[in-house]
Design a protein around this nucleic acid. Sequence first.
RNA 1: GGGCUUGUGGCCUAGUCAGGAUAUGGCGUCAGCCUCCUAAGCUGAACAUCGGGGGUUCGAAUCCCCCCAAGCCCGCCA
Length: 554
Amino acid sequence: MFQERYRQIERMLRECTDEEDVLLTTGGDHADLASTVAFKLAKKQRRPPHQIAGDIAGRLAADPDLGDIQVEAQGPYVNFRFGPSLLAEAVREALEPGYGELPGHPERVVLEHTSANPNGPLHVGHIRNTVIGDSLARAFRKAGYPLEVQYYLNDMGRQVAIVAWGLDHLGIAREEGEKEDHYVARVYIAANQRIQENPAITEEIDHLMQGVERGDPETAGTFRAAVSLCVEGIRATLAALNAHHDRFVWESDFIRIGDVDRVIEQVRRLPQTHEDETLWIDLSEEGFEKKYILRRSDGTSVYSTRDLAYHTWKGRNYDRVIDVLGADHKLIGAQLQATLGLLGERVPEIVYFEFVSLPEGSMSTRAGKFVSADDLVEEVTAKAFEEVTARRPELSIEERHAIAESVAIAAIRYDIVKVSPEKSTVFNWIEALNFERQSGPYIQYAHARACSILEKAGEFERAYRYETEHEVALARHLALFPAVVERTVAELRPHHLAAFARELADLFNAFYHYNPVLKSEGETQISRLTLVDAVRNTLQESLETLGIDALRSM
RNA sequence: GGGCUUGUGGCCUAGUCAGGAUAUGGCGUCAGCCUCCUAAGCUGAACAUCGGGGGUUCGAAUCCCCCCAAGCCCGCCA
């Protein structure tokens, strides 16, 4: 409803003013839609803007095409407000299963996110990547794109060599019940300590790395075993977070199948490429000062070379390539984009997010200085279990535990996704454990309330008459959801979805407080029940795009 | 030193790309609301030189310039 009306009003304003951009935006409290085009015309027509706005409103009001939209000039603003039949239409649409879905797009999208190095568990910095990436993936699916989500597994880096060496030489045993990735981190930290004490070990590490680059089967096997072990733990964490990857892509495969050699050949033909003891590209014309080295003097490839091969492959198999990367990748990401551009390959769209640090400073897997995602989930789940037990002592332990798990993931994911990605953040236990207002559980709670009312009401005939301020505000807000999905995908910024869901919960709670549903009667009651059902459905759909369970009871 | 990003009440945050109507919410503080659809809720109060200074404009949190502060990056690491 909203998007159609937006386009309609935009078109009518264009015809009425002969302006290409009619400055149409949402009008906040004043209106559903509002235009400031009168300011722009004031200069050209040398008339005061309020007069022009009045003329425009007068002419549009006389146009029968406007239908159930009221138009009014308020000073220099031309305000549009949706009438009762449009609000009814909005509620009707919001009741549909899958509400918010957009017409399908043909472009196949590949979205890469998380891709943390397999040398330890995911920590609270990594999962910002996970939550942003997974929410975006869900938004893309809702927006009608065929999508594949990938995890790029760095299985031949120096850290992996260090882990493999540590597993071989340090004799550290896995503890009873210790998760694979946490065990790997322990070995990695210990191995790094050992290297610091005895730098000669570095040569052994180099030797391992050359072996894996040559494709030496024994070394490759050790690396693969180390990586597989860690990935098992990482997968479990991702699953707990409700984040799903369709495919894990192993970096070393691009060497094994010859893609790295092929991309080197391609690079060689570029006029910007130089070959001395190393192979490098001069990207100074693209604004980069340093050499972009793609082959070491010992003939081995670097991370960038393999990444180039990976992105070439993605670009040839998908219509859009999207990466979610930490801000520390900005330079190499830009170099990658520039190089792919020179090669005539598809250039990826990159979503950057700023760093998450701890109050005592930035995190480091090597130094063992991090809060793991698993510890976070455990702590938050324990707190959620306490809360559920206090509120719903009559539920069984199993039921309370299931609710606590969902509430914990909601709290964690929402806490991360609500902040726009370009803000750096400091991890804060107090906020992570807060389930009030601007939180995932708060939105889940609004949903559960709606479910509870509907369950008590039983069967009812639908009706769509909305008069109170709270009813109208809710219906207006419901109408925005598809536009929010569209905006999220257009801007690659999932925090819009978080804000929409929270505002909907806010409006519903206010409505709940002031407009009784079950105690009302007649058409008012069935209209309110219909509205509650539409809110329930829209909350469910928006929570789904955020990867949060829409609990029916909590 | 250079580049990128950020700077909004005590704390966190929306709005900045597409400049407009009294700057969005939350936490915390203070004062209220459960004989009433789940109080993980609702209401009210106090709290803001939108980092600072210039400029453009009828109009700037938003655009331009300078400065300050914080984070990140600048490897034949990944």
